[in-house]
Write a protein that binds this DNA or RNA. Sequence first.
RNA 1: GCGAGCGUGGCGAAACCGGUAGACGCAGCGGACUUAAAAUCCGUUCGCCGCAAGGCGGUGCGGGUUCAAGUCCCGCCGCUCGCACCA
Length: 878
Amino acid sequence: MSSRYNHREVEPKWRERWAASAIDRALAPSAAEGKKKAYVLEMFPYPSGRIHVGHSRNYTMGDVIARFRRSNGYNVLHPMGWDAFGLPAENAAMERGIHPKGWTYDNIAAMREQLKLLGLAIDWSRELATCDATYYKHQQAMFLAFWKNDLVYRKKQKVNWDPVDNTVLANEQVVDGKGWRSGATVETRELEQWVFRVTAYADDLLDALTKLDKWPDKVRLMQSNWIGKSQGAKIWWDIASAPNFLPPSPAGEPNHARDPIEVYTTRPDTLFGASFLALAPDHPLTKAIAEQRPDVAAFVAECAALGTSEADIEKAEKKGVDLGVRVKHPFDPSWELPVWAANFVLSSYGTGAIFGSPAGDQRDLDFANKYKLPFKPVVLPPGEDAATYTVTKDAYTDDGVIYNSRFLDGLSTRDAITRAIEELVKLEKGEATTQYRLRDWGVSRQRYWGCPIPAIHCAKCGVVPVPAKDLPVTLPEDITFDKDKPGNPLDRHPTWKHVKCPSCGGEAQRETDTLDTFVDSSWYFARFTDPTNPDAPFDKKLASYWLPVDQYVGGIEHAVLHLLYSRFFTRAMRDCGFLDGVTDGEPFASLFTQGMVVHETYKSASGTWLLPEDTDLRDGKRVEIKTGAAVDVGAIEKMSKSKKNVVDLDAFIQDFGADVARWFVLSDSPPERDVEWTASGVKGAWNFVQRVWTLTEAHGHPAPKPGESAPAMEPDAHALRQLAHRAIQSVTDDIENFRFNVAVARGYELVNAIAKLKGQTAGSVFARGEALRILSQLISPFMPHLAEECWEKLGFTGFVATAAWPVADPELAARNTVTLPIQVNGKKRAEIDAPKGAAEADVRELALQHEAVKPFLEGVTIRKVIVVTDRIVNIVAN
RNA sequence: GCGAGCGUGGCGAAACCGGUAGACGCAGCGGACUUAAAAUCCGUUCGCCGCAAGGCGGUGCGGGUUCAAGUCCCGCCGCUCGCACCA
């Protein structure tokens, strides 16, 4: 009597039982004596509406780890929440007249139900949403603490300004120099911004990367590049002469037009090759001169107008204008150099000024060639002759021996850098310095749907923090969104921003900027450790117990920003007294970046995107079901709503079940690589589910308990036992090492082997029952519903989800004979079976006497026989 | 331009420290069951030569190290990702 496995009944049944027994709750530290903790976390989602099967991969991977750890006796924390502030809610409000709050919470409710259908072992009692005042209240408190500790400050910063939407745009919202929504040309504006002092930790954030050995090298490298530490020197170039209109420098006042020009370089060894200085178009001196010289003003305007897109910059020709200023060479006051403004000098890096040493820098060389500035080589490449070596169009940027450089002559690049800095220090013309590419983090956003910044602007007292007793500063709900009135709705609100100054009691205004949503996600992992605490972001003891996150799982797209900000935040929380258990400031001990789910894209004849479910394969051609018309099959891309190449999760689970979805997204492709969602792959997973169930049901006996002694059995039954115990070893190892696709393959192997053993003897029944028990346990992290159903069918009580992970019997798992390939001159000619660990001499004899080997040894001399124990024999002969 | 990664059957892939290349899945082919189909089950499937036993070739291309290379080294080609005038 066999019945088809009915996921529509089985899956909800087990989810209800798990929930009723609260098995997914993390234990309080006091209740978890003797257990190790495991904090498993997937990057929490933005509640955009509905989830598709593509989203499920990330959560499934985390779930496999969480379930695996629980089976291995850990106290597991596996929570879920919502990254709930952000622009899409405001866009929806504008487009559809819905309130961002309602839209967001509706989406959360829908997505929570969808996620629950996946059967994830999540402690839902800890759910949080960053848009709850109960959450952002603590964020505001931490903001104030950071402010007090000088980790928050205000600064005029260049921003991308959309003049139509009246708002700041993030870099990724600027497409080809135009605002992504309005299409208006983006301007650069200077705005007073709230800034987090990330650079305070620049060195630590960089150095600590070496200790994050459970992070992908790629991510560590990306962060390292992003921080971009470089060692060099600051050099001060005294003004020799300047246009008369520049006023003289008042003594003691810095940053004046006639002050020495500060330049940053990593190559002070090439100072004697210098032939000009170049300043950024918005360098203070450039701007001062532009006020008096129309040609310079025109040049500055031209640079500002040039698009900010990378392609524009790439194509832009090196251009400049002579500013009419002359400076003295630091090593020789009689040597004067011209000062130019140049479009390739960035004001945002270093000091916004460089010295041009054309023979050693391609940009400088291009520039010098264009404007006929002189240059001479000062670094002699290895193997070149100083008498004949010349530079014309290609600069030499590598190391060499310094020449044409007076006291630096004959030194290596490295020694010359040290020597040059020594001399600069002696002459008080410069000093060694370190530069970072990393900038402080501007967090001001002119938006409604974000965490209000707890600050008040008072004409008398300046910028005043909101007193702790007045937190949270909540968002007003009576807000209007109007397409015709762009900008920040908070700013337009009739009453919200008008408050009394907490300091003087006078009329004042609230800060109407809200925080970048990356702030919300920079500490949510810590809030999960104590998610309902009303008085503090989290209890220190609880956070110390759970943190760091033992396994973090998410997309590579967050390799830099989210992960770097979280590392910053953890250090800042530590140093402001919120956190004391994470002394190294690292929030995520181990990181896994998973690949995406990709799918073909389909376009109808009229050019609109089609959902996969609206198409069908007929005679090998893809057609639109409604019309029968041919469909244009496009590239295989990441599943996304905009291209409609998505498979809806609800519908899929209805048709095939959550276990099929979970099994499929983990099979075939390695987890870090993308996996293509295909109908045939689904079929494979579906067949497997059916096969596991059919075999389990057909067995018809209770399975032996773990450790139960086995009866005598036939060799094929014994072989199944061996395979099952080896599968335990392999799958355990595969999960531990994130090789889920290999674990899946082991599952197929075990099922194939179980199906092959047909006998009904006591031995066979035992072996089959044991193998089925092991199978149900090994698949339980992957297909938890099916595993429970099988576990129950095999006569066990309680949940397989909470049963102890199976342990392989070492004797059964061990291989006592091994098959050794025998090679002659590296080509395989035969195989022999030998006892494991057989003596070299014995194996050697077996190999040489083998019938299949002999013909290849005739007429040649055996030079050498290599025997690698338990691996291979290679006979070298000629 | 700089940096990193990848390249294996018709497809997704596996291969631990250099030791039988292609596990496992999909698709294909042949067969069983069936009036038929679906489902299921069994067999088979890198290419070439051969009736077969077997042989030869084969991990993007070209070299090298080694008894032995998908794996290590050098040089190309292609693809993907990150950064991008960073001084």
